[in-house]
Design a binder for these strands. Sequence first.
DNA 1: CCGCTGTGCGCATACGTATACATTCCCGGG
DNA 2: CCCGGGAATGTATACGTATGCGCACAGCGG
Lengths: 329, 329
Amino acid sequence: MSVTSRDVARLAGVSQPTVSRALRGDGRIAEATRARIEQVAAELGYVPSEPGRSLSTRSTRQIAMVADFENPLYPTLVGPLHDTFAEHGYRMVLLAERGDDQVTYARLLDRSVDGAVLTTTLVDSSLSQLLIDRRLPFVELNRRSGLPGANSLTADNEGGAASCAELLVGLGHRRIGAIFGQARTSTARDRENGFRSALGAAGLALADDHVSRGSFAYEDGVRGLSEIMSSPTPPTAIFCGNDMVAVGALNQALNLGIDVPGDVSIVGFDDLAIASWPCFRVTTVRVDLASMARAAAEAIVGQLQGRRVVAAKAYPTELVLRRTHASIS
Amino acid sequence: MSVTSRDVARLAGVSQPTVSRALRGDGRIAEATRARIEQVAAELGYVPSEPGRSLSTRSTRQIAMVADFENPLYPTLVGPLHDTFAEHGYRMVLLAERGDDQVTYARLLDRSVDGAVLTTTLVDSSLSQLLIDRRLPFVELNRRSGLPGANSLTADNEGGAASCAELLVGLGHRRIGAIFGQARTSTARDRENGFRSALGAAGLALADDHVSRGSFAYEDGVRGLSEIMSSPTPPTAIFCGNDMVAVGALNQALNLGIDVPGDVSIVGFDDLAIASWPCFRVTTVRVDLASMARAAAEAIVGQLQGRRVVAAKAYPTELVLRRTHASIS
DNA sequence: CCGCTGTGCGCATACGTATACATTCCCGGG
DNA sequence: CCCGGGAATGTATACGTATGCGCACAGCGG
């Protein structure tokens, strides 16, 4: 049915191994032979079988990116990761984290990928430990399991959140609210810890009815704002766990006739492109996701080439002041 | 290094083929034997090698989704496709269309996938024809090459665009503008044709300085609105090739102090979630992307199981009236 | 004229799984 | 008591590529 290296060999009048060597650029093949083989291969439209190659070499030159593509943060990582892998001769396959973990686990362990970039690991997930045990090179991007053997590239989430708290406190806010992400993700947890600590340092704390929780999605911002602002003593500022939540909160504020930043200040996190749109102009924390993604890709490639790589790194963040914050009147 | 079926066989005191049969649920294996094998496999953490399996069976049970993940439309298709494939025992891998076509082509032909869902095919691309020649089952989703052997699931883009034109004309608009997508995509071309035809039927035409072109991205809406509204006789309504473009145009209108729909009406296409956000509320055309995606997945699976499947289908669209359109005063 | 070196290629085999075919064993019918 | 037959498992091999090793031959020095 499909054309194999044997077919090419027959037509070129050589043996199958010679075809393999010629096409892979083995120097010991005579120039004339290689040219002939390449021509025959092109005529037949020969494409080497990846399963055959993988089985023989025990490597696939493929790296999985495990992500949740419903979350608009992740598509922004695809480009930098893909390009960096491509520069090193690796292909990237995207693995949609969806439902059953077991399927994802099996997919990473069935020798169809050489490594993985994990972007959705929950802090209580056993995936990182499993991959360590199985010796599958991986990097955590924008997440950290905290395991000893795990490489992890994240933003300085604690520091960024702390700078938000300091900004708001400096503007005179005293009743402050927050819409955090799931405590099961390191990103949400770190941002929450950073924010609470900085508030604490200023002698403040979050009232229970000024806190909402969600999964970092638009709808969580919508719901969170409604809940928090329906408090008998609503806060004058709300910290949002990420920009999508902030955008949801802004839209809901518009819906409810709440003025931002007149009635309430809103700050986000990540500085996604959407945060800078004229109708939002969200004050937020910039995270250099592209650099983090490239570094993650380099780290995996380094591991695959047997190099030692940095164990963990937190990238600095930067406060971006736009127009959703104001001082207390 | 890694555990193979041979290792399991040795420990279970059977032959390698027996392990293979037992784990795949072959009925001829005695219950006691299977139980023992399954226990040993679990103890050793045996995961069958996908390259080995693929080589032997000449099938990978994997289907590629070729998409451009920078475009926010595509992530919405991931979920429905993934889930439908999963129901039929197939896995989905995402292939980021990026730069060199040759890499994508090779990836589809190297026997690492059984089929493909193409979402980014340009009308002048040779990919569909190549896949037909190579007998690789595929479906075009949200795009159509128009080739005889190609299955294609799209929205009724011509009809939807025509209904936008009729809406605007019915509201009394006479000077109408448009921000279209790349003419190289069937989606953009069909929407443009439908819009122009319906205008023509009403005795109207698009002035050259009322037309802009882009690649369906946010920035194209920003630029398009600026260009079109700087015409000496700006239009009173602008048709946008999709919702992201419409949102870009709305943001730029806000930036420039242009009132929507007071100064100019704006309509979009697709009805992405963002179009319904309170700060936009875009009048648009609903496309049932989830149904299309599920149908596309079913079509591929049907082909893989040797069934005949529908060659092409255009899904009906529905006008969604929100608040970015108004009648001419 | 012989042996040595190196180039260019073929031979044999490995990778891990699936499956057609062969074999063994046990049971029951004649 | 023998033999047919089915159940349960083993044997042999195929899938397509990569690679260690060996062989043939040309060129060259002695």
